[in-house]
Design a protein around this nucleic acid. Structure first.
Length: 561
DNA sequence: TATGGCGTCTAGA
DNA sequence: TCTAGACGCCATA
């Protein structure tokens, strides 16, 4: 985990009075606090830090009772109503027509909401280089209606009408919403999103500080909380939101995404590192429809028209491998690398993956390394590496393509400045968004850039987790965030795991063993080339030899015949 | 069913 | 002829 000093170096420290990093470290590093207590303390701290002390809100955040974790998915005995006092934030009818806020947060189901501490951090009109941030702009609206309730405005009024759509979707769900309607809805939301971003950006500069420091009644702000419904990484169905009874007046909640796994047990929560997340317990009673996951998917908000990179697949693969820590990656990490640096692939038709695999198999520049079948459920697969004998060739190939149209390449990159580092293999990528601690570099500049990249990776997490600051380069680990997002953590048994996940622990190097594949006839010759010990390999189907790791080092392989 | 590995076919240089 | 890419098949988890 980043130490406090380095975190400060990221510029993500929120203020002079508190250090969220220290706070989080403390929470996660201690066994003396339950997760519930962590959440309680953190949420209160966060909310108080933003709106506490504002008498116009008419409540004291520190007086709120604890947010209970739900071990009673059905009964939901734990009610968080005490949290927000007797005044209901919401109108309380999920199908209410007088509120476009579809979340019926009244009722006992409120207890089922697991509020991630990060969720309540204000991300107020943070100017973002990408549309992603538009999903997590946090703002506060002190505006009340005549009843003293929160005025849950239609997003359509000022930022788009996601709630109108939520409502529509709710109705649609009741009417067995069909796919066509979904499409229309998605399109509509995309437009709304654009509007939302535009407005957010327009008002961000002058309002951001103001709102973060004090609540100005004349400023209508909105809390937009994304709650990911994670039945799987692909949400496919309209989801409902559990109830939250009372939320402090003046706070308007716009968006929820429900994090929930179909196999989730009460002891498990899904964590959401990116975004401001609210965790919903498995038993959360669904009351109101929320947009399907697809509609909240990052890719939907990251639709910049990135062109297809002007590299051949083999070049892209070579770059991925070259920028890996071990010089080898599973195909999935090659995908990730490509998506991460060339957003085109995030939305490209799936065929590109076939092409990648095809290239790996057919191109003699790439070598397959057998990976042990272990790790239980993990698909066996293979690791792929650049054939050391072909490294120079691949370098030339990459350079050739780079010279062809560098501008087009940079246009296809999410971070054009990283191009040279990628070409030189100096942005070590360990898969899962990790980066090497021992980034090799040919010069000081590269070292600095690599370090910046490394920090930016963490910065992405942190920005989405606990701070308002947001570094453009943090987008580099979108893929990683997604992957970690759905990691399931047993919070009862493994707080340490949670800690590690939040810190994006360094990836364990793969261990290799002699391949037992019956397809391959092995003949050891023991020729050593660079970091590899080569053994010629013959396969029945494939040209490629299989490399097998020699020893426990990170970059020594045996090539098996 | 999703993913991974690889073969076949085609187009263009 | 070579390379790149699209597409499809099959095995596997």
């Amino acid at each position: 985990m980043l130490d406090t000093e380095s975190r400060h170096g990221t510029g993500l420290v929120q203020g002079p009075t508190r250090d969220p990093w220290l706070t989080m470290d403390y929470y996660l590093g201690t066994d003396s606090l339950s997760l519930q207590e962590m959440l309680d303390v953190d949420i209160k701290c966060e909310i108080e830090g933003v709106i506490g002390g504002h008498t116009e809100l008419g409540f004291n955040i520190t007086d709120m009772s604890s947010l209970e974790m739900d071990d009673d998915p059905i009964g939901c005995h734990n009610d968080i109503s005490g949290w927000f006092g007797p005044t209901s934030l919401l109108n309380g009818n999920s199908n209410s027509s007088n509120s476009n806020f579809n979340l019926d947060l009244n009722g006992s189901d409120a207890a089922s909401i697991m509020v991630n501490p990060n969720s309540v951090m204000p991300h107020i009109a943070v100017r973002s280089p990408t549309p992603n941030n538009g999903r997590r702009h946090f703002s506060f609206s002190p505006k009340k209606d005549a009843k003293g309730k929160i005025d849950v405005e239609e997003e359509a009024e000022n930022e788009g009408s996601s709630y109108t759509e939520n409502e529509n979707e709710n109705e649609n769900e009741n009417d067995n919403e069909n796919e066509q309607e979904n499409e229309i809805e998605n399109d509509s939301e995309a437009e709304q999103y654009e509007n939302d971003i535009t407005e957010t950006e327009e008002e961000s500069e002058d309002e951001q500080q103001e709102v973060s420091k004090s609540m100005t009644p004349s400023k209508s702000k909105t809390i937009s909380i994304s709650v990911a419904k994670a039945a799987s990484p692909q949400y496919t169905k309209a989801q409902t939101i559990p109830k939250i009874n009372d939320i402090p007046p003046g706070i308007r909640i716009q968006n929820f995404k429900v994090l929930q796994s179909p196999n989730q047990t009460p002891q498990h929560v899904r964590k959401q590192i990116y975004n401001n997340n609210v965790h919903i317990n498995p038993g959360a009673t669904a009351v109101t429809a929320v947009k399907r996951e697809k509609e909240f998917d990052l890719s939907d908000y990251d639709d910049k028209p990135y062109p297809k990179p002007a590299y051949s697949y083999s070049c892209l693969i070579a770059m991925a491998l070259k920028n890996s820590q071990t010089g080898s990656l599973p195909v999935s990490e090659i995908y990730n690398f490509m998506c991460e640096h060339f957003p085109y692939f995030k939305t490209a038709p799936n065929g590109w993956k076939n092409s990648v695999r095809h290239n790996l198999s057919l191109n003699k520049c790439f070598e397959k390394i057998e990976k042990p079948a272990g790790n239980g459920n993990q698909r066996k697969g293979c690791l792929w590496a650049i054939n050391p004998a072909k490294v120079a060739k691949m370098d030339e190939e990459v350079q050739k393509w780079s010279r062809k149209d560098p501008l087009a390449i940079k246009k296809a990159m999410i971070y054009p400045d990283h191009l040279e580092l990628l070409e030189r293999g100096e942005m070590k990528y360990a898969g899962n968004g990790d980066v090497s601690e021992e980034t090799e570099s040919s010069g000081d500049e590269a070292v600095e850039e690599s370090t910046a990249y490394e920090e930016s990776i963490h910065g992405h997490i942190t920005a989405n987790s606990v701070t308002d600051s947001y570094d453009e380069s943090s987008q580099d680990c979108d893929v990683d965030i997604h992957e970690h997002l759905y990691d399931e953590i047993d919070i009862e048994d493994n707080k340490e795991a949670l800690h590690m996940h939040l810190n994006i622990s360094k990836q364990e190097p793969f261990e290799y063993e002699l391949s037992s594949s019956t397809k391959r006839q092995k003949t050891l010759t023991g020729a050593i080339q660079g970091n590899y010990v080569y053994q010629p390999v013959a396969t029945t189907r494939r040209k490629a030899p299989v490399l097998v790791r020699a020893g426990t080092g990170n970059s020594s392989f045996l090539k098996i015949d």
